[in-house]
Design a protein around this nucleic acid. Sequence first.
DNA 1: AAAAAAGTTCGACGGGCGTCGTACTAAACT
DNA 2: AGTTTAGTACGACGCCCGTCGAACTTTTTT
Lengths: 127, 127
Amino acid sequence: MDTHVTQGQAAAATARLVEPPAKLDEDKLCHPASEEIELAAVLHALSDPMRLAIVAGLAAEDQRTCGSFNLPVTKSTCTHHFRVLREAGVIRQQLEGTTRLNSLRRADLDARFPGLLDSVLEAAARA
Amino acid sequence: MDTHVTQGQAAAATARLVEPPAKLDEDKLCHPASEEIELAAVLHALSDPMRLAIVAGLAAEDQRTCGSFNLPVTKSTCTHHFRVLREAGVIRQQLEGTTRLNSLRRADLDARFPGLLDSVLEAAARA
DNA sequence: AAAAAAGTTCGACGGGCGTCGTACTAAACT
DNA sequence: AGTTTAGTACGACGCCCGTCGAACTTTTTT
């Protein structure tokens, strides 16, 4: 090999063909761009009572950790629900030490689907 | 028995304990009352692309028959989607000869969840 | 260095969903 | 009366969803 690529880097590149994100810490939690947010996915994400509660709780107080909700499910189920919300573009998760801070993507959602989040939040508060 | 209940009525009442609606033609297609409409059920009903298309089509032109949508699925699947929408309280179906006329429950939905339907419809139109 | 804290990953399980085909019902049109 | 029209009812199939437990990673605390 005449290129300055170590054996480790080559192995990593090969592995990336199979498993894209690999090791970049920032991209480990991948979010859709605001234009990529799909309505059906958002509505599906919000159609679960527990996820609706998460979103309502986040609307009341932003930047909360996953554990702060004290949901009546195991941690793995908790991870699942937050991932569904994140991949639908409803919330943003950022790594912060050992925890993940969750925030509502209000601006992005409002830009893509004006008024939708607010009406859902108001509806959730009413029930 | 000293109450004025005929044998027929008693039998009907007993049967109703096992199979509530039974034979009343109007109740064959049972809809939830507006206060009984649940948010999660509505969001779930709207989270399917085909049902979203049905609702959008109904918003454009009301009182349409099931067949008028020419959906790319079989009739039984079609029946399924309309039932999900009806049982969630999103649409109303009324028997009319051999067909069922579908209409959006705008007033009921607006009363229960103000602005929700409109924002979803606007979001659907945008995508 | 060891333990604790906060999540993630993986495999598994049961139930529900979207889809289909076949059989059926009820009204409408020959 | 027979046929067409417009749906419904009932299984059946594969797949996805919500849930769990066990093992793991990473950062923080002791």
